[in-house]
């Protein structure tokens, strides 16, 4: 897949795991496993980027005698997801158009030229 597109998709995908409740690195990867084989080394830069863009907040809390970082989505982060979903309405429209064109071309008899 196109790198730039994939980057944008992963950003929103990671954000979406925080909608229900705050989460942490390991759990985000586990939650995303069914959709995307995202690795720790991919996740880390994404989290940093999202934090820099103020789409999520980070807080450190104690867990079992060690520190763990918890990520929570911000208002801007939720807005980013809404924006993504409405943008993809258009993409899906294009997708369906391309799909139906191909179907038509397959069922129609082939042109001589």
């Amino acid at each position: 897949m196109d790198m730039q597109l994939k980057k944008g998709l992963l950003d929103v995908l990671v954000l979406s795991t925080l909608l229900k409740e705050d989460s942490y690195g390991y759990r985000i990867i586990r939650d995303l496993a069914p959709v995307s084989e995202i690795s720790e080394s991919t996740l880390y830069p994404i989290l940093k980027r999202l934090e820099a863009a103020k789409l999520l907040n980070v807080r450190t809390a104690e867990h079992n005698g060690r520190l763990r970082k918890y990520y929570s989505i911000t208002k801007a982060g939720k807005a980013r997801i809404d924006e993504f979903l409405s943008e993809w309405q258009d993409v899906m429209k294009v997708y369906r158009f391309i799909e139906s064109e191909r179907r038509l071309s397959e069922s129609a008899p082939h042109d001589a030229n």
Partner: peptide, 26 residues
């Protein structure tokens, strides 16, 4: 480093032993 340490600890907490927790990482 803190990020990777946390991931390794979480993997161990989940039941993996230290070696395999690290081996699963990039």
């Amino acid at each position: 480093l803190a990020f990777y340490a946390e991931i390794i600890d979480d993997r161990i907490e989940e039941g993996a032993d230290e070696e395999s927790a690290v081996a699963g990482l990039a």
